[in-house]
């Protein structure tokens, strides 16, 4: 199966600011890997349930009990930028 990746779109989705040269290189490499990976399509899987997990466990819950939070100072000490008790980032351009 020939693979044709819109690599610029994929990079935007993945929030990676890549140069045109990088995009070209990654597209070529990804296409090679994906052509190999696309071998999975050769296997007939009609009626086969997907496995998203090697375990067949269900209902792993915790009780609704409050536990200790982290120390705010220890958390914010790792922040690249902060303002008081807030994390600070450049302005947001897009709505969620």
């Amino acid at each position: 199966m020939p693979i044709d990746i819109d690599i610029a779109k994929v990079a935007r989705l993945a929030r990676l600011a890549l140069s045109d040269e990088e995009l070209d290189l990654y597209r070529a490499q990804c296409e090679v890997v994906l052509e190999h990976a696309a071998l999975v399509q050769a296997l007939p899987t009609e009626g086969v349930e997907p496995t998203s997990h090697p375990l067949r466990r269900t209902n792993a819950f915790r009780e609704d009990v409050v536990t200790e939070c982290l120390d705010t100072e220890e958390v914010l000490a790792q922040a690249p930028d902060r303002d008081g008790n807030y994390f600070r980032v450049p302005p947001i351009l897009e709505e969620p």
Partner: peptide
């Protein structure tokens, strides 16, 4: 997670 659900707490205190 076990952090409390609470409206109006000081910023970044109910975090883990």
């Amino acid at each position: 997670c076990g952090c409390p659900v609470e409206f109006g707490a000081p910023p970044n205190t109910n975090v883990c």
